[in-house]
Structures are given as structure tokens and as C-alpha cells.
Design a protein around this nucleic acid. Structure first.
Lengths: 189, 189
DNA sequence: GACTTATTTCAATGGGCGTTGAATTGCGTG
DNA sequence: CACGCAATTCAACGCCCATTGAAATAAGTC
């Protein structure tokens, strides 16, 4: 049967391969043909199931990370402990072999593809958070730090030992910074 | 006369166009043909003067930013005022229409091109800084934050007003954070 | 003016790309 | 079995790419 399009194994396989390759190589460096090869199907199937390479990318991103939720939770706490809690979440996320690569992939491709920029922007700063006024600045600052740390990590800039054993060292090193970020510019200042 | 290769106007024009386009589009999205068009010469001149697209990119990067010097200076100061001083330098640098785009270009392309990663890494963490032990972590943290802020800014994530009028607001918002970063993990901890 | 050397042009090669449309297979239903 | 429809394959299109090598031009030297 297989109504419309959706329950084919191949469709999912394409999705998974695309996520992997986009993450590893970025949007521009990933070809539809490579995705198809990885998924073990014909290249023509990709524009068949998803309309275009760009649409496929959108679909992949939509399936990925929604960091705003975590951020919102941390903002609601608002005390010193929140920084550590947030950091643990973040580090765990981007050290996870699957999730980490996905996030990185989005980040990477954001620079290649204008449409990805919007998606990223909306994922990081959904309406309700953005509208909360001064919080916007704090969310933006924390996001920026995290983006930078992830990029550095990916570039091999950092000391590997910081991320051994669940990233305890990284959490310790970053905690006071995140604390300062969350504390900066109180809700009424 | 023009000995060997070097004093041709075109060579320099290519270099300039390449810097511009790499900065705006990233390595992978910039074609030799586009560079040549921008420089007003034949595409074949590019692999003629520089051996390959990759070599051209290396040449461009070599001509760009050396943020380590500024960082080193800030580290030597080490007090609270240093954070603000460092920030002013950094913000001024990446808000400068020319310099800002160049830095961004390198950052952008670093993700596309492995060889660029090494260059970036060495520019940010030269031997003498890297060997200074605990300072390495601090340099890395500050760099990460800056990388993140620049990326966010380029993605349009941030509030434009933060960077109006020389970026005073941005400096204010970030100063406590950078202070925390520079203060974190004293030289003997 | 002839020779040399650097600079530039031109045309072409081979390759990868995203996408298309027609053909083929496979399968559940009448 | 035959029909219809989804899943898939295949071959091809047109486009842009980096790079090449030979030809043409310009400039400086004797």
C-alpha cells in the first residue's frame, strides 16, 4: 500500500544519510548523489521524495535540536545553579555523537544557506522568548557563547581534556561565564 | 619589467577580489571564475599567478588578522580593565567593514577547508601563548566567545542596536563575561 | 627592429552537479 | 489475471566548475 509518500524505508534512509552528511560536510559540500549513495538508492529518489535539495535540508533541520526549550527553562530558574544545569544539558547535547554532529551540521550549513539562517534564528529565538524583552539579550549572549564553543571544538582549537568524561572540566570552566551571562542585565535594567 | 611574478596590478586585484568574495560567500561558494570576473581578468590568470584555488585561499588568509597579539596583551594586563580594553579592540576589529568581513571570511571558510582550520588554529594560538599553560584555556574560552558572537552577528541573530555607535552597548553587555573568562582558572589553579 | 620574457587571452577538457521525464519493477486490489 | 499505483531505475539534459596548454599581446633590452 504505502499511502502517498512516507512509509518507504528509503525515504527514511535518505533522511538519515542526509543528516549525517550535512553534519559532516555542510550543505554546499554535500551532494544529492552522495546522499543517495550513502542511503543505497538512486539519486533521482531524493528530488522525488523531497522536492529539492534545499527542501531536504529544511526537513532535516526541522528534525533537529530545539535548544530554545532548554534555554527557556534555564532562564526561568535564574539563579546561579541554572548556569551549571544549562551547561550540563548543552555539553551533554553536543558531546552526544549523534546530536552533536547534527547541531554542528546545522550551524555549519547556516553559513552556506540563507534559508537555514532563518530556521536557526527562529529555533534559537522563538517568539515568546524574543518578546520577553531584556531576556532576548541574555539568550543571544548564551547562544553566542555556545555557538563559539562548538565551533572551536570542531576546529580542534580547544584542549581535548576539557571534554573528557562527560565534559566535567568544560562545565567547570564555563560555569562562571554562563553565570555572568545569565546575571548580566537584570529583567528591569 | 616586472620580474618573475609579483608586481602585476592584476595579481593584486585578484587577491583583493578573492578576499572579498571568500569573506562574503565562503570558500566553497566562491568560484575562480567569479573572482576573475570581479577582478576584471581572465579566469585562467588565477591558477597562473597562484597555483590553485586552495593556494590562493592560503595566500589570502596569510594576509589577514592576527588576533593572538591582542589577546596576549590583554592577558598580560590581567585585571578587570583588561576585559573592556580587549573587547573594545575586538568589537572595533570586527565592526570594521573591511577587517570584519575578512575575519568572518576566514571563520566561514574554516569550516569548508581543512587546511584553513590549521591556519586559523595557529593564528589564534601561537606557540608562545599555547605553551603558557593555564592561559591556554583562557585564550581558548575568549576566542570561543568571540567566534560565537561574530557568527551570531553574521547570522542576524542579535539585536542590531547592540552594535550601534561603535558597539558601546555590546562592550557593556560582554564586559562582565569576558572579565569572568579572564579571571576563571587563575595561573596556578 | 629583433629577441626575450612576462602578461594575458582563448578554447577546450573532463568532471560533478541538481534535476527531469520516461521507462521499469513490484505489489495490493478488483 | 489484469489493473493501478507507488517505488524505483536509467539515461540524459544543461550548467558551472578548476585547470590546462597553446596562442596572442605587450613591454623592456640590446
Amino acid at each position: 500500500m504505502a499511502e502517498a509518500k512516507g512509509l518507504s524505508d528509503t525515504r527514511q534512509a535518505i533522511m538519515r544519510s542526509a543528516a549525517d552528511l550535512f553534519a559532516e560536510l555542510g550543505y554546499r559540500n554535500t551532494s544529492i548523489r552522495a546522499i543517495a549513495a550513502d542511503a543505497g538508492c538512486d539519486p533521482a529518489l531524493v528530488p522525488h521524495y523531497f522536492d529539492s535539495k534545499e527542501a531536504l535540508f529544511s526537513a532535516v533541520v526541522a528534525d533537529t535540536v530545539r535548544p530554545a526549550e532548554v534555554l527557556r527553562e534555564a532562564l526561568r530558574r535564574g539563579d546561579a545553579g541554572a548556569a551549571e544545569w544549562l551547561l550540563r544539558h548543552a555539553v551533554a547535547d553536543w558531546e552526544d555523537p549523534v546530536q552533536g554532529r547534527r547541531i554542528l551540521g546545522v550551524l555549519r550549513s547556516v553559513l552556506d544557506l540563507p534559508v537555514a539562517r532563518e530556521r536557526m534564528s527562529r529555533a534559537l529565538l522563538p517568539r515568546d522568548v524574543a518578546d520577553s524583552g531584556p531576556d532576548e539579550v541574555r539568550v543571544w549572549l548564551v547562544s553566542s557563547l555556545f555557538i563559539g564553543v562548538m565551533t572551536s571544538r570542531h576546529m580542534g582549537l580547544l584542549d581535548e581534556t576539557l571534554f573528557k568524561e562527560g565534559g566535567e572540566a568544560a562545565v567547570d570552566a564555563l560555569a562562571p561565564v554562563v553565570g555572568a551571562l545569565l546575571g548580566a542585565d537584570g529583567p528591569d535594567a
